[in-house]
């Protein structure tokens, strides 16, 4: 048997990406953590129903508050922490990564496939309750004329949020080989706390996601005044979208590069 000239059968980048994506979507959707997260994501709806049973409530105002303070700040990072972070780490900890690394495949495509599947599941977990919450709030009182514009902006913002947080958490997983602690440190220390500090907030996903959804307060807060800002600095919507898309791209390039070259000792 000639061994030196044997033709090599390999899978194209696109087919590989699709195969990995479909495989992990199928498994991710049925996983226990996805079901638990789906239940957690029902909480804002339940809260909305309870709050809006009272008289004189501002349904869309309540919806915007829920999106800004609960969903964008806590629930989106939480969902992504448990979806994007483990995308790679679960394979390492479960030691199934050996099977993938034994195939003649592009490791960056494996990384990207896993990231996209995590982002899609996260988006579904976040957007569906968001839409239900919107219609609960919409039905609660007299909605403003721009109610559906608010819905559109928040949907797009949360969708971008799901991709950007997943990209960061998946990359942290590829770098460290464990994701939960790294993700929590990044989110709590690097994103949430920084988003409360004037100027520094421009470097956070939280700020840009709120800005993209037109949820940033245009009046300066006490901390803004403390640093001498008489009025809040206005960052255009496209600026925030640009920053978030750039973050996703940078995170994915770094994550793919690390995943391609890293030796996972298992």
């Amino acid at each position: 048997m000639s061994t030196a000239t044997k033709a090599v059968k390999t899978i194209s980048f696109g087919s590989l990406l699709t195969a990995i994506l479909l495989f992990h979507l199928r498994h991710g959707i049925r996983s226990r953590k996805t079901i638990i997260l789906a239940v957690v994501m029902l909480l804002p709806i339940a809260g909305g129903v309870l709050y809006l049973t009272g008289d004189g409530t501002d349904g869309i105002g309540f919806y915007k508050d829920m999106v800004e303070h609960i969903m964008l700040t806590f629930l989106v990072p939480l969902v992504c922490l448990f979806q994007g972070g483990p995308a790679v780490v679960e394979e390492i900890e479960g030691r199934t990564i050996t099977y993938l690394f034994l195939r003649p495949v592009s490791k960056p495509a494996v990384f990207l496939g896993k990231f996209v599947s995590a982002a899609i599941i996260s988006t579904a977990l976040v957007i569906l309750p968001l839409i239900v919450l919107f219609f609960v709030c919409y039905a609660a009182g007299e909605p403003p004329d721009n109610a559906f514009q608010v819905l559109g902006q928040t949907v797009v913002s949360l969708l971008v949020g799901c991709f950007s947080y997943n990209a960061v958490f998946a990359t942290l997983g590829a770098i460290f080989g464990w994701s939960l602690l790294a993700g929590i440190i990044f989110w709590a220390g690097g994103d949430f706390l920084m988003s409360l500090v004037p100027i520094l907030e421009f470097g956070t996903q939280n700020f840009h996601l709120r800005n993209a959804a037109s949820l940033v307060d245009t009046k300066p807060g006490p901390l803004d005044r403390l640093v001498g800002l008489e009025e809040a600095i206005d960052i255009p919507l496209w600026g925030s979208y640009g920053a978030l898309i750039a973050l996703v791209l940078i995170a994915l390039v770094v994550g793919s590069w690390v995943f391609n070259d890293r030796q996972y000792v298992i």
Binding site: V8, K9, T10, G94, R95, T98, L102, P104, I266
Partner: peptide
């Protein structure tokens, strides 16, 4: 990929989906 297409490994670890 050329090498990986021509080898198979039955690893020691009992790891599966």
């Amino acid at each position: 990929p050329y090498v990986l297409s021509r080898i198979g490994l039955c690893p020691e670890q009992d790891a599966f989906y």
